[in-house]
Simulated scan of single mutants.
Amino acid sequence: MKTKLWLVVLVLIVSACKDLKYSYFTRINADGTIFKRVVAEGDSSLIYSSPFSFDVNEGWDLRYDKKVDGEGGDTLYLVIAEKTFANLSDVNRALELEGDSAHKDNIYGELNRKFRGFFSFHQYTETFKQRFPFKHLSVEDYLSTDEYAYFFEGDSAAVINMMETEIKAYEEQGESRFWSYLAGSLGIEFVALANSLASNSQMAALTEKDSLFAMQLFQSSVDNGPDLDEICQLIDQQMHTVWLSEAYTNGYFEPFEKQIDNEVILLGDNVYTAEVQVPGLLYKTNANSIEANSAKWTFRRGSFLYKDYTLSLEYRTINYWTFIIVALVLLILVGSFVLKRKT
């Protein structure tokens, strides 16, 4: 399982030339409906092989196009999916995956509104959920923001003024902490699976000592990858039982083993752009740029491999009905005052 991080970075760079580019456009309409456009752009072999994470057969309008790359002169193919949703709940039902997958975009949106007299203040967030399936630990407790950006987002700003030896040390230290994060995540997941099996089989759960031993086994197996068969045998020896080994033989840990093989080291350097257009005054956002009432982001898939990546913005709309009510009240008060003066 183990791969040097510098090799991971190299694979990310090499893969960039063949991965798809994704563009997400969201328009929040004043009536509460939400328009979505998602565009995948790249090689034709990828475009025509189900490039989207969501089911395009659920009411999406689909069309294909192509264009010439301005830099390389290559022909790029596009597939464009569009749909107008009645509300954000419908959007989430389409884009937030029930069966979470490390190989698909899993997106969840939230829209909160606060009424303040003549104005309403709205807060919108759209979160690209972490692809790494085990969420017991936070990678931010192991890697700094700069380290994460260097290893997974292609940002070399942290090492730009370093000597070669310093860069090597920087990579090795980051690699060591990253592998502690991976091994810890796997160890916690294994203990949870083992205790779930014990509960269902009326067996004694792993004690704190047994759990710590399991965690140590995962940490020490990082060079060659965890051998679940051997780990089960060693923990059985520790507990003087055989039920973990029997569970492994019967295939209980097979899904977990597949996740270790396929969903631990996540590669791919797809470029993403996102734009959110709002029906009011946009006054706060973490976007890279703002144009009128639209916020725009550019990021890479690495931004949400091992942690969530959230687009956020706040905007203000005018409550015209409040003005109408106030005007009517004033007219009534003025009318009442005039009638009293006449009498």
Rank of each mutant, 00 (worst) to 15 (best):
71 E>K: 15
315 Y>R: 08
135 K>A: 03
152 F>S: 09
286 N>I: 04
170 Y>K: 00
205 A>V: 12
273 T>E: 06
128 F>E: 05
93 R>A: 06
322 T>F: 10
78 L>W: 05
92 N>W: 13
229 D>A: 12
162 M>V: 01
268 G>C: 02
104 K>N: 11
312 S>G: 09
249 T>V: 11
186 L>E: 13
238 Q>N: 15
21 K>Y: 10
99 G>K: 15
145 T>Q: 11
77 Y>N: 06
178 F>L: 13
52 F>M: 14
99 G>W: 10
112 N>W: 03
150 Y>P: 00
19 D>E: 07
312 S>L: 11
333 L>T: 14
126 E>M: 13
79 V>R: 11
90 D>F: 08
278 V>I: 11
231 I>N: 05
178 F>R: 03
168 K>I: 00
145 T>I: 07
159 V>A: 01
80 I>T: 06
200 N>R: 15
336 S>Q: 14
191 V>M: 06
229 D>K: 15
200 N>G: 12
299 F>R: 12
120 S>F: 15
288 N>P: 09
282 L>H: 01
110 E>N: 12
88 L>W: 04
95 L>M: 14
88 L>E: 11
144 S>P: 07
226 P>A: 06
55 D>C: 14
7 L>F: 00
44 S>C: 04
113 R>Q: 12
339 L>I: 09
189 E>L: 10
213 F>G: 00
69 D>T: 04
277 Q>C: 05
318 I>T: 13
109 G>D: 09
325 I>E: 05
135 K>D: 08
179 W>A: 00
278 V>T: 07
323 F>K: 07
63 R>Q: 12
334 V>K: 00
218 F>D: 02
119 F>E: 08
265 I>G: 00
324 I>C: 08
35 F>Y: 15
31 D>S: 14
246 E>W: 03
246 E>H: 14
105 D>S: 13
256 F>T: 14
112 N>R: 14
208 E>M: 05
2 K>Q: 01
313 L>V: 06
134 F>E: 08
342 K>H: 07
165 T>V: 08
137 L>M: 09
63 R>H: 09
342 K>C: 07
13 I>E: 04
266 L>Q: 02
11 V>F: 06
325 I>K: 12
296 K>C: 03
10 L>C: 04
174 G>E: 06
104 K>D: 06
144 S>R: 09
257 E>I: 03
133 P>G: 06
326 V>F: 05
181 Y>G: 03
312 S>M: 11
102 A>D: 14
305 L>S: 10
142 Y>T: 09
292 A>Q: 15
138 S>Q: 10
73 G>H: 09
133 P>A: 02
257 E>C: 05
281 L>V: 07
35 F>W: 14
66 K>F: 10
2 K>E: 02
231 I>P: 03
285 T>G: 00
